[in-house]
Design a protein around this nucleic acid. Structure first.
Lengths: 342, 342
DNA sequence: CTGAAAGCGCTTACAG
DNA sequence: CTGAAAGCGCTTACAG
């Protein structure tokens, strides 16, 4: 008679939830067998499997992955950390990444790193508390603290949208520096003498700036007129940018913008001022927005394949999660789109 | 001497991971005290708290939320189910939603419902296996099965981007039917006699179509020329759309498009054909893309506030998670943007 | 203000 | 091909 009438220490909080033991009882098997119906169905006798599946369907059982993940140390969760997904080239990457991962049985935890009031380490704490099996990161400019923590944990990491010799783990992206250099070379080939830059001041835009400025320097043009625009980049801020540029530097004959939206604003403002694009002012954007070509056929731009980055990043992670040991570095490259030859 | 030398049934899989007991030992307290340092710091003596926090920092402890969620039945996870986030008005909603939820201590699990090879129920299984504490849904047109499952679970649900009298739980959106009717009334006021529609065939675009067509019917115009475009909507498909429309119905004098991209394509194609927009052909888009106004000042469009939807949806969920019982239905409305009065 | 015991719902490793 | 026991890392409810 010992303690047989003691009430349980803890009330069941969600009495209506169906558990694996309910399914097991209903199918007349043990819980492990139900577990195997999900995780290793081929190991069950066909009629056992059928019976279990019937019970699952009848009861509407959905396994609790918090419990499953805790027990197996496999959360089936992948984190995707991007600065922002609104009006962003990254949204395509996240879209394809999420599609691909979910086809492989993983789900995506979204981490938006572009808060001003939160640092990368805090975001990482929140993410890591979920015990993701892999992480997609945007860019390669992370704090040492973040790099070290991620390396120590040992889960696969893919950095994206940039290029470096020394990634945390894997990488799929392209060189922003090389893009800046390429645009500068095109401008130089067109006879540009007074180049300008209208740019957001994020890490990757600044890398393009570096390649652009250095290439001009090597060609004897030491001065590049510059305006940094606060986010978000928009057509309106492009217009403002050109106005400010012309106030300060009346002689400019080319502008490299950190986004197509800025470039559209600049071509629009130039048109308003009677400046011929590209004859008097060559304009190059970044991102190859689909509508930009229609809007402004004189616009040169740089195409990068955000979808491919998402797909490749997902593939790298999936292969590693399946046991591959390769540490891929994939350069997806970029493409200069010139719609008018002058 | 019984079993004292038996090896453990199960090898520790992740021996390097710091657990709550490690922190407890290091700080000289019990695990519950460490738990309280995270979940109820005000209940601890200040110096105990300080000691525990020091140990947490020294060891770099990150709590395992799989375990915490299982134990407390509070996953601190919110699911956001949207058709797509690439080139999409929804990306703003998800952005603001995620920002707001994460400030409140929740994280967002992303569910993309626009696969062709996966139905809504399968996606819901994957989501629910994570035991989210709330769900954001896009639209109100869900299967009965999904509505019923969600209702039964009892967690707060917000439907968004549409309007209905009978939501699953809460709702923040606007009426697509009303938008179609409003655009039709504007066209009628302008003297339009031969209206046309170029539309994607998703649920919400079809609701706008309904309001548009019915309003014309009530004004004695029974025929609306129509073309349904396959996704994704783009400037290019807008051009094609107008070409097809004109092939079949030479007399049209107004087009209502399901997106600004389609509308841009139509104005561009019209310009190419020497058709004056809006004098000969009134064009109305949807979504008020920032660059559309610059590109095509003659374009009328409908502005909807995706950010407000995301913020409101998050707020509704947070309030309910904090104990409120109200079941909010918020109509954020919409706005017709006419940039040229003819 | 702090802690010992029990439990959350799964999966693992082993045995048969 | 199937199952009994133990364990994953937390939190709850209670006691003091």
């Amino acid at each position: 008679m010992i303690a047989s009438d003691s009430k349980p220490r803890r009330e069941r909080k969600t009495p209506k939830t169906i558990r694996i033991t309910d399914v097991a009882a209903s199918a007349g098997v043990s819980p492990i067998t139900v577990s195997r119906a999900f995780n290793a169905p081929q190991t069950l006798a066909p009629d056992t499997l059928a019976r279990v599946r019937r019970a699952i369907a009848e009861l509407g059982y959905v396994p609790n992955r918090l419990a499953g993940g805790l027990s197996s140390a496999r959360s089936k969760l992948i984190a995707a950390i991007v600065p922002t997904i609104a009006h962003s080239l990254f949204s395509e990457t996240v879209q394809v990444f999420s599609d691909t991962m979910s086809r492989a049985g993983y789900q995506v935890l979204l981490g938006l790193s572009d808060y001003e009031d939160e640092n990368e380490d805090q975001l990482l704490d929140a993410i890591l508390s979920r015990r993701p099996e892999g992480v997609l990161l945007t860019g390669v400019a992370h704090t040492d603290s973040l790099r070290e923590r991620l390396r120590k944990i040992g889960i696969p990491i893919v950095e994206t949208w940039d290029m470096t010799d020394d990634p945390i783990d894997m990488l799929t992206g392209f060189s922003h520096d090389a893009i800046g250099a390429m645009v500068a070379r095109r401008f130089i080939a067109r006879g540009v003498k007074h180049p300008a830059l209208v740019s957001a001041n994020d890490q990757r835009a600044l890398a393009r700036r570096r390649g652009f400025v250095e290439t001009f320097e090597r060609h004897g043009i030491a001065h590049v007129a510059e305006i940094l625009m606060p986010p978000p980049s928009s057509v309106a801020s492009g217009k403002l940018g050109l106005a400010h540029l012309l106030d300060q530097y009346a002689t400019i004959d080319a502008v490299f913008c950190s986004s197509d939206l800025l470039a559209l604003g600049i071509t629009s403002e130039a048109r308003k001022r009677g400046i011929d694009v590209p004859k008097q002012l060559a304009v190059c954007g970044f991102g190859d927005l689909e509508f930009a070509a229609d809007t402004s056929p004189a616009l040169t731009t740089v195409r990068v394949d955000g979808k491919r980055i998402g797909a490749t990043a997902a593939q790298c992670l999936i292969e590693r999660l399946n046991g591959a040991t390769e540490r891929a570095i994939v350069d997806v490259g970029f493409e200069l789109i010139e719609r008018e030859t002058v």
